[in-house]
Amino acid sequence: MDKVQKLSSENGVVIFSNSTCCLSYSVLILFKELGVIPYVHEIDRDPEGKEIEKALLRMGFNGPVPAVFIAGKLVGSTNEVMSLHLSGSLLPQLQPYQTLN
């Protein structure tokens, strides 16, 4: 779907989530602690939410939200983000998007 592609390419770090998802909130807090303010798109509040979910599936995303994109690339869900963080691979990907604190 063009909307997913557009949002993920126009914003450095994007989280597709549901407004009540605690896993999405956890990823958001992690990013903020790392100095990154991601663009959060709440699928459940978007009239095209079902189409976005289908587009994410077509892109290879098969987990529950959040669907995280960094630099226009689908990273995955909470498990993938946390694995990258624990291995030390997440911060280098986020570095271009960190704000000065």
Rank of each mutant, 00 (worst) to 15 (best):
A67H: 04
A71D: 13
E51W: 04
G63R: 07
M1Q: 10
V81I: 14
S89A: 14
E51T: 14
C22I: 12
L74P: 05
V65T: 13
N101A: 11
L28P: 08
N101C: 10
A67W: 02
N79C: 11
I43N: 05
L84Q: 06
A55L: 03
F69W: 05
I43Y: 07
Y97A: 01
V27H: 01
S83I: 12
N11F: 02
P92E: 09
T99M: 11
K32Y: 12
V81C: 07
I37R: 10
G63C: 08
N11Y: 03
L86I: 14
S26P: 03
G88H: 06
M1A: 13
L90H: 08
E48W: 03
K54I: 13
L94A: 03
P47D: 14
L7R: 02
E33H: 14
S9G: 10
L100H: 11
K3R: 05
G35N: 11
H85C: 05
S77D: 06
P96W: 04
G35A: 13
V68K: 00
I37M: 14
G12L: 01
M59F: 07
S17I: 08
V65G: 03
L7W: 02
S77G: 12
H85P: 03
N101H: 10
Q95V: 11
Y39P: 00
P38D: 10
Y97L: 03
N18M: 11
P92S: 08
K3H: 04
L30N: 07
H85L: 06
G88W: 06
F31M: 12
G72R: 04
L28I: 07
L56I: 05
S89R: 11
H85S: 04
P96N: 07
L34G: 02
E53S: 08
K50C: 09
V40P: 09
L28K: 11
F69C: 01
K54Y: 04
P66A: 06
N11R: 01
S9I: 04
Q93W: 04
R58I: 13
N11M: 01
D2W: 00
D44P: 06
C22G: 10
D46G: 07
I29T: 15
T78L: 10
I15C: 02
A71R: 04
P64R: 13
N62F: 11
V75M: 06
D2M: 02
I29N: 10
V68D: 01
C22E: 12
V4G: 00
E42W: 15
Y39N: 03
I70H: 01
E80Q: 15
P38M: 09
H85V: 11
A67I: 04
E33G: 06
T99C: 09
E80N: 13
Q5E: 14
R58V: 09
M82W: 13
L34I: 12
V27A: 03
M82C: 06
S87R: 05
P38Q: 07
L90W: 13
L91M: 10
L23F: 15
Y39D: 01
V14P: 00
L34F: 15
L84F: 12
P47A: 09
V13S: 00
T20P: 01
Q93T: 05
I29C: 07
A67D: 02
Q95Y: 06
E42F: 15
L86H: 13
S87V: 02
E51F: 08
V13A: 00
M82S: 05
E53Y: 08
G88I: 02
S26V: 15
K54E: 11
S24W: 04
Y97G: 01
F16S: 00
F61V: 00
V68R: 00
F69L: 01
A71F: 09
D44R: 14
E53C: 14
